[in-house]
Design a protein around this nucleic acid. Structure first.
Lengths: 221, 221
DNA sequence: TATTCGAGTGAACACATGTTTACTCGACAA
DNA sequence: TTGTCGAGTAAACATGTGTTCACTCGAATA
């Protein structure tokens, strides 16, 4: 009979709450608990295992069924951050860019994006420079990938056609730095302060404009 | 007699270890203990009061004679960071800048400077994005002052004479971001990896070159 | 249907933590 | 010389911490 084969075909709709699904569910609960605590102003590197399990509604010992230690949870958060960044790029790619004021609209879209995923960006911005070396390094790798993809996209769009791949990557690195720095600023914006908000956006736009202006006149040497 | 006046003239060489001097001394011990722990790879926001006093060779309760809590110690570190940055600028000002390859030499000087004061820069780079909100904000203020001074210096040197003060400040902000980001990279360099080191320096130089190139072609509005 | 298997439990452990309290004891001003 | 004043001490406190262990109990398998 087909059912009793060694490989259970596909695990169809019946297994609504299979074991592995349930495990994955609480794994997610742990991740989200950590993010939620970050959202309450705490830095990831100052969170404790017990705090996280408490927030996740699970007993401390259960943590070890999913992660060896806090660093491993942190790496899961980094990966989530990486996915978020790739998704951002994918959206930007889809939207295309109107030639006029395209920088400004990109910035506004980015701002919204950051605000809607504030927890992940808080984590990235917060652990990027401090925290555990292994997490910091993982974030850096993610940033570099992000920069590479961005470079590829710019190339495909025909922007800055005269630049070498190396130069393009280096410039995208600069853009990424600026973006993540701006994310930090965006997240610390006091709400309902439109003036301050406007200033921040302007500053961000202008900085990117300077970078792309410089890129246009860049000559290899 | 001149000695018994109400105001003790000058606190001369005799009062080698006056009370206030001794207090200041252990205050410094606490600050340096925190820095030392940072140097061992820990982020400031994950340090504990007891850890710090232990490292400083002092009993936990003594901490409160100097700081209300860890945030207050953190602010002292921020101020120390501010002093460090101002000092950097003062040195750069003194050295003047040879017109050819001035960017590259500046970068090398900066790199050396960061390495020699690695602990302070570790602290700044680490708490800039994460950590306690009050510390983060204090660092941001310090950065802004640094950017302003830099703008003033550039103005005095006649660099970028066509830029408005606002534009100049905005560009210096970009430079500062890039510098602190690079500091983070410099501090994480594995030692005796000259190739990697060279790449990092090149990248840093190129990024700054792009920024200044963009600045030269910047037109308001 | 009977058996295995492993995610989550609850309790216990050996410490580490922040803060308070009453204290010592030496520099300093009177 | 005497008395004050305050930096640093020692001990105690109530909690919080990471990790371990034997356990339950229900879904997955055979």
């Amino acid at each position: 009979m087909a059912k009793s084969q060694t490989k259970p075909a596909k695990a169809d709709a019946v297994s609504r709450s299979s074991r592995v699904e349930l495990k994955e569910r609480t794994r997610l609960r742990l991740i989200e608990a950590a993010l939620s605590l970050i959202g309450q102003g705490r830095g990831y590197s100052s969170l404790s295992l017990r705090e996280i399990t408490r927030e996740a509604g699970v007993v401390p010992a259960a943590f070890y069924r999913h992660f060896r230690d806090l660093d491993e949870l942190g790496l899961a958060l980094v990966e989530m951050g990486g996915v978020t960044l790739r998704h951002l790029l994918r959206e930007a790619r889809r939207d295309g860019l109107s030639p006029t004021d395209m920088l400004r609209t990109s910035v506004l879209i980015y701002k919204r994006y950051v605000e809607e995923r504030s927890l992940v960006f808080r984590f990235l911005a917060g652990e990027r420079g401090g925290g555990s070396p292994v997490i910091r390094q993982a974030i850096r790798t993610e940033e570099s990938h992000f920069a590479s993809e961005m470079a590829q996209d710019l190339r495909a769009l025909g922007t800055l056609p005269d630049l070498s791949s190396n130069a393009l990557h280096m410039i995208c690195g600069l853009v990424v730095t600026t973006m993540l720095n701006a994310a930090s600023d965006i997240l610390d914006l006091p709400k309902s302060r439109p003036k301050q908000e406007q200033e921040l956006v302007d500053n961000f736009v202008h900085q990117l404009r300077v970078v792309f202006l410089g890129a246009r006149f860049w000559r290899e040497r």
